[in-house]
């Protein structure tokens, strides 16, 4: 048993994801804590050049296969399972992003190992690993100890600053081969790029963000008036997009965009981790929510416990009066 810590270096469309560096930073701490090596596993097709950015790891395991060219949980998990059986790491950290979702669970199934999902922090304690996980939309945290010699960790974005996982060092690369069973599988036909004709919410100074608490499509129009009074645009969290009240181009968070406006005014947004991921770095976050325990208040600078609909008209009038 090598007993090493592995991180899966997530690459998509030829680029390493930020979570790869977050995983490297976290993995480095855990590996050092246990006195074992940190290895980065890079899966893809014609992407070996990316290994030069993975110097925070002691070494890189690279697998090149056409089946791994596009993201796909089944192929990724199958490749990882083959490597795990050969090399016997103790922990495999898999990103819990939209690109890699499902890979961790499938890997755990294939190698019979426990999977720890929604992990936001990981540490070594008495030779074992202990994970802190975010549950119930960010309202509860759980400390979890996996059983057995091997654990798969589904790592949530934001565990460590990505810059702590970067290094100029050029790590040694070990190339491995895997095989794939000939069985029916899903095939990517084409990518659908986001609608470029809409407002680019990543370029706005002021964003008025609406969530489930906005209650209806008519109320989104009121939020748009408020945004206009502040010289900004409206964006939304997942439920609002799923309801069809705003287009996908306005979605903030996982699946959507990461934004960093000068002001992020969150109305009726509870602050599920998937949303916080996309806006937590804005320098001024103001949240209005009727639930005083809403997780959004943990990242907001100013908070108001109120129904968003009670605040929108008054705030708009106040802003317009000031602007003359």
């Amino acid at each position: 048993m090598s007993g090493n810590i592995w991180i899966v270096a997530e690459q998509w469309r030829g680029k390493l994801s930020e979570i790869t560096f977050e995983s490297l930073a976290l993995g480095r701490e855990v590996a050092d804590g246990l006195g074992v090596k940190l290895q980065a596993v890079l899966l893809g097709h014609d992407v070996q050049n990316l290994s030069t950015s993975l110097g925070m790891a002691d070494s890189v395991i690279y697998v090149d296969h056409t089946e791994l060219a596009d993201p796909g949980a089944s192929a990724q998990a199958s490749a990882l399972a083959q490597l795990v059986r050969q090399q016997k790491p103790r922990t495999v950290i898999v990103p819990l992003t939209n690109v890699s979702l499902g890979t961790g669970t499938l890997l755990g199934e294939q190698v019979g190992a426990p999977v720890v999902n929604f992990c936001k922090d990981l540490r070594a304690a008495d030779g074992h690993i202990v994970a802190d996980c975010v549950l119930y939309g960010g309202k509860i945290e759980a400390t979890v100890t996996p059983r057995g010699d091997l654990t798969v960790i589904g790592l949530w974005p934001g565990s460590r600053p990505p810059d702590k996982g970067r290094s100029d060092r050029n790590p040694p690369v070990e190339t491995q081969t895997v095989t794939f069973a000939d069985q029916p599988s899903v095939k990517l036909r084409s990518y659908i790029e986001p609608d470029a004709s809409d407002v680019d919410i990543t370029q706005q100074d002021v964003l008025v963000a609406v969530g489930r608490g906005i209650q209806s499509q008519e109320n989104v129009a009121l939020a748009e008036e408020l945004a206009a009074s502040l010289g900004g645009a409206v964006c939304g969290s997942r439920p609002v997009i799923d309801q069809g009240w705003l287009p996908l181009s306005r979605q903030v968070g996982k699946s959507g965009l990461n934004v960093k406006p000068k002001l992020y005014l969150a109305l009726g947004i509870s602050g599920a981790p998937e949303h916080l991921e996309g806006m937590k770095d804005a320098p001024l976050i103001v949240a209005v929510n009727s639930d005083p325990d809403a997780p959004i208040f943990n990242v907001a600078h100013y908070g108001v416990v109120a129904d968003a609909m009670d605040m929108i008209p008054t705030l708009k009038e106040t802003v317009l009066a000031l602007r003359g």
Partner: peptide, 27 residues
């Protein structure tokens, strides 16, 4: 395959400064 040793409400490093009052005052 996992043991949950404990659950808790998140311990937060920061929390919003809360603004109280009627909508007019808060606005």
């Amino acid at each position: 395959l996992l043991d949950v040793s404990h659950m808790r409400k998140p311990v937060v490093s920061g929390h919003a400064q809360m603004l109280d009052g009627e909508p007019e005052d808060v606005s």
